[in-house]
Every structure is written in structure tokens, then in C-alpha cells.
């Protein structure tokens, strides 16, 4: 690895200043489980400063308010998320992804904020965070702003984050009555793998009908893909097999995958259908139990 420097700011302002002054040569780091691998693979030749986000209080926040919802600091590691009873109860969909990113050791470091900023097409946490209506809270040299998560990733490993900006936290609105969510991916192994395709979804039920739904896909486009049309099409329909079939077909049609070592175009589109049906069924079951 080429020489890098390391800084560990203790406030958002300090971090923003460091990143801003460094221009493009600085890179924020939370758990480091992606950035260190990329540095070693010479994928970030211009980066010469890592700014550690883990010692900034706001990035470690984890606040669950029944009215306001969940505020999740961008650097909170996965294991703290699935170890939190309140989150487990209110956001089982977040637990789904937090408990399958990497393995036990990776989950000791990796964060959902980092997974989002890494902006891999396969990012496991992103579809369900989009489905849950999550919002990114960003601080930068010219102030703070909020971005809906479906707009956050702009390309392969590219995001809306501008020079000097950092992702401070993620915000999820409090779940409403009869809401359920799920993340499901397909991997060849049972753990420690990259999604061949993934589906995150959230549904709200109303007397056996789908009141509203949000579905997002991973690994089938340059960015995680929010498929708004699915929610629009199945809203008002009964939560039955026919509706799930419709959703699956729409996911298959919306997916724009490539063929690579992890799967073919045809197979990935097929998976979008299968996984959307299966994932929505789990979300529906959870909604019924909620």
C-alpha cells in the first residue's frame, strides 16, 4: 500500500474541515472493511489521508423515538444494530441486512452508513433502507442537507456526497401500524458472499390489502434500484399470490443486470422475480404480526 496519513477528528466540523482542506485526496473511513481492501488493491491511488469517523459522537448515535423514528449514526457498527432490542422490534428489515453483511468479525466494524457510502451495486443494506423511506443527513462546508436514500447512490461507487461533505446519520421514520419489511439476497454460499441479486421491501397492510409498498433491488444495476412502479401497482391490491406474482414480474422487468462471475443477466432477472415474491411475503407476514 502507498503511504497514507490518518486523522481521527472528534467533531463533525473538524472532519468536514479536514476533508475539505484535503481536496479529493482524503477519504472518510468508518469500519474500514471496504476502504482498506480498496487501498490495498490500488483502487484508490489518489487517496493519501484516511479520516476516521468513529470518534465523532454524532456518527455513533443510535436513538429510537416512537414518534420521530430511528436516527442511526453513520459509523454505528452492525453488531450494535442487531444487538439493540428497540431496533429489532421496530425495524426487523434493518436487522436482516446488519446481520448478513460480511461475517461476525466484519460486523464488528462495518456500518450501514459505510455500506451506503461505498455505493456498491450489491450493497446489502441499501435496498431495505430505501424501502424504509430512509433519509441521509449530510454535513458539509456549506451546511447540512438531507437526501432520500433512493437518490443517494449515483453510479458504481459514486454518491451525492460532495467534496468536504460527510454522511452524519441515517434517519428512518417510525414504523406505522401493520408495517413490515425485509431484505433478502441470493448468494451461492450461506454467508460471506456478495449478493447475486437482492431485494429490500416494506409494506403497510390494511385489512388484508396492501395499503402501500416500497421495493428496491440490489446487484442488478449500477446503483441500488428503487422500483417505485411496483409499490404503485400493488397498492390497494390484496396481499395474495397473484399480487406477489405481479410484483415479481415488475422487478424482473425493471432489473438491468450484467453478466459477470456472480451470475448471468437472465439468471439475475429471474432471481429478482423469485426474491421479490419471497421477500414481500416475509414483509407481509411481519406486517401481520406487528
Amino acid at each position: 500500500m502507498h503511504w497514507i496519513d490518518y486523522a481521527s477528528p472528534h467533531s463533525v466540523r473538524e472532519a468536514v474541515d479536514l476533508l475539505n482542506e484535503a481536496g479529493g485526496s482524503a477519504r472518510p473511513m468508518a469500519g474500514g472493511t471496504d476502504v482498506l481492501v480498496q487501498l490495498r488493491a490500488n483502487a484508490l491511488p489518489d487517496v493519501n489521508l484516511l479520516v476516521d469517523m468513529k470518534n465523532i459522537p454524532e456518527l455513533n448515535e443510535m436513538t429510537m423515538d416512537p414518534e420521530v423514528g430511528l436516527t442511526l449514526g453513520a459509523a454505528v457498527p452492525c453488531y450494535k444494530i442487531y444487538g439493540n432490542k428497540a431496533i429489532e422490534h421496530a425495524f426487523p428489515g434493518l436487522i436482516d441486512c446488519a446481520s448478513l453483511i460480511g461475517g461476525t468479525q466484519i460486523q464488528g466494524r462495518a456500518s450501514l452508513g459505510g455500506n451506503l457510502c461505498n455505493a456498491a451495486p450489491s450493497g446489502d443494506s441499501i435496498p431495505v433502507m430505501i424501502a424504509l423511506g430512509g433519509v441521509a443527513r449530510i454535513s458539509g462546508p456549506s451546511g447540512d442537507r438531507e437526501v432520500p436514500l433512493e437518490d443517494f447512490c449515483t453510479g458504481v461507487r459514486r454518491t451525492v456526497i460532495q467534496q468536504g461533505e460527510i454522511l452524519v446519520s441515517l434517519h428512518f421514520p417510525a414504523p406505522v401500524a401493520n408495517q413490515g419489511a425485509n431484505y433478502m439476497r441470493f448468494i451461492p454460499r450461506n454467508e460471506m458472499d456478495i449478493a447475486v441479486a437482492g431485494v429490500g421491501c416494506s409494506v403497510v397492510l390494511d385489512n388484508g390489502n396492501i395499503k402501500s409498498a416500497r421495493v428496491a433491488l440490489s446487484s442488478v444495476a449500477p446503483t441500488p434500484l428503487y422500483v417505485k412502479e411496483i409499490g404503485d401497482a400493488i397498492a390497494g391490491k390484496p396481499a395474495n399470490e397473484e399480487t406477489l406474482k405481479l410484483a415479481g414480474q415488475m422487478a424482473k422487468d425493471a432489473a438491468k443486470p450484467i453478466t459477470d462471475m456472480r451470475g448471468t443477466i437472465e439468471y439475475r432477472k429471474h432471481l429478482c422475480d423469485v426474491l421479490t415474491r419471497r421477500s414481500l411475503q416475509i414483509a407481509i407476514d411481519r406486517a401481520k404480526e406487528s
Binding site: R189, N190, E191, D193, D260, M261
Partner: peptide, 29 residues
Amino acid sequence: ALNEEYYMRDDGSMANTSLLDYRMPTSLD
């Protein structure tokens, strides 16, 4: 039998040179 392979690109390079993508069985498999 099930997952391991050198996934070769047309230029003769191996695409999956990590233990993430060269999928040897884990304890859970």
C-alpha cells in the same frame, strides 16, 4: 462440485482472486 472455479475473463485473467469470490465452503454451508 458446487461453487469453486477459476472464473476466467476472455483476456485470460482470473476474475475471482479473493476468498470472497473464490467460494470455498464455510462452516455454514
